[in-house]
Amino acid sequence: MEQPTDAEPSVQVKVTFTTIEEDIQLPETKRQLLVPADIGRHGLSRILNSESMLDTASIPFDFLVNGSFLRTNLQEYLETNGLSHESNVTLQYVRSLIPPKYEASF
């Protein structure tokens, strides 16, 4: 489940967003964020695209954590790597490599 509601607040993890793509840089004050631990790349994409972040509406993003793509939710990533909720996870975001045609019907 990737959409916790206000009724059941979930555990949070602190993440730091970075990117090497010049045109989608976040301002420095928006790079660190507390996010629900059960979030995956879709939820993270939605956050990045939101008005208060990049305000880009619909770019699908992929996330690199420690050099590999995030394929699970953050909670599973932490568990697999023996990390706790005290960790600060650095997420490098890149435009998803999904072909544009597919992206259009996203």
Partner: peptide
């Protein structure tokens, strides 16, 4: 580093409509 102060830290939640809402921590 600049931007790493707790004063600027935000948190993201998802509303019941699935849209992210961002508040100051």
């Amino acid at each position: 580093k600049k931007g790493h102060s707790v004063l600027e830290l935000k948190e993201a939640r998802f509303g019941s409509d699935g849209m992210p809402v961002i508040h100051r921590y």
